[in-house]
Simulated scan of single mutants.
Amino acid sequence: MDHYSFDQLPHAVSELHQKLDSIQDLLLESRQPVPQTIELMTISQAAEFLNLSVQTLYGKVCHREIPVSKKGKRLYFYKSELEEWIKSGKKKTMSELREQLPSLVVGRKGRRH
């Protein structure tokens, strides 16, 4: 730790202020959201990403089982939509089902058959 004389204090405070400004700038830069790039995929890229054959993927598109965009004769897939599609098929674990059970039981009590 440096010891400053009374005469050196204004210079030391100025240096300290500059360093704090630099730290603040770095913190503000790191807090800014990173712009998300929209990753568009061709059918071949989507098939590879999903680990499916192109033919299987065409079948899913034909049966409207998977999110797809069509421009002219070309098919395009958004990576984020494919990730959401995969997540939508997630099977719940036993603990998740147990947590959900009380709300299901309460919901059925009010119904009449």
Rank of each mutant, 00 (worst) to 15 (best):
Asp21Ala: 07
Ile43Pro: 00
Ile66Thr: 06
Val106His: 13
Ile23Glu: 07
Gln32Leu: 14
Lys92Ser: 14
His11Val: 12
Gly59Lys: 12
Gly110Leu: 10
Arg74Gly: 05
Ala12Lys: 11
His11Asp: 15
Val105Asp: 06
Arg74Glu: 05
His113Ala: 11
Met94Tyr: 14
Met94Glu: 13
Ser44Pro: 05
Asp2Ile: 12
Lys73Arg: 15
Ile86Gly: 03
Arg31Tyr: 14
Val54Trp: 02
Ile43Arg: 04
Gln36Ser: 11
His11Trp: 13
Gly89Lys: 08
Gln55Trp: 05
Lys90Val: 09
Arg64Lys: 14
Glu99Ile: 07
Tyr4Thr: 01
Glu81Val: 01
Ile43Ser: 04
Leu16Ala: 08
Arg74Val: 06
Ile86Asp: 03
Gly72Ser: 00
Gln100Thr: 06
Ile43Leu: 02
Val106Phe: 13
Lys90Trp: 02
Ala12Val: 09
Ser53Thr: 07
Cys62Asp: 15
Arg112Lys: 14
Thr37Pro: 04
Glu39Pro: 08
Val13Pro: 04
Pro33Ala: 01
Tyr78Val: 10
Arg98Glu: 15
Ser103Ile: 08
Leu104Gln: 09
Ser44Cys: 06
Ala46Ser: 01
Gln32Gly: 04
Phe77Lys: 00
Leu101Ala: 08
Tyr78Glu: 11
His11Leu: 15
Tyr4Asp: 02
Trp85Ala: 01
Lys109His: 08
Glu15Gln: 09
Phe6Arg: 09
Ser5His: 06
Val54Tyr: 08
Leu75Lys: 03
Leu104Asn: 06
Leu101Tyr: 04
Arg108Pro: 02
Ser95Val: 10
Phe49Gln: 10
Leu26Ala: 15
His63Cys: 12
Lys90Tyr: 07
Leu16Ser: 09
Glu96Ile: 02
Lys92Trp: 10
Glu29Tyr: 05
Leu9Tyr: 05
Pro35Gly: 04
Leu82Gly: 02
Met41Val: 04
Ser95Arg: 10
Gln36Asn: 09
Ala47Gln: 00
Leu50Val: 03
Lys92Asp: 14
Val106Asp: 12
Tyr76Met: 01
Val61Gln: 00
Ser95Ile: 09
Glu39Lys: 10
Thr93His: 06
Lys70Tyr: 01
Leu50Arg: 01
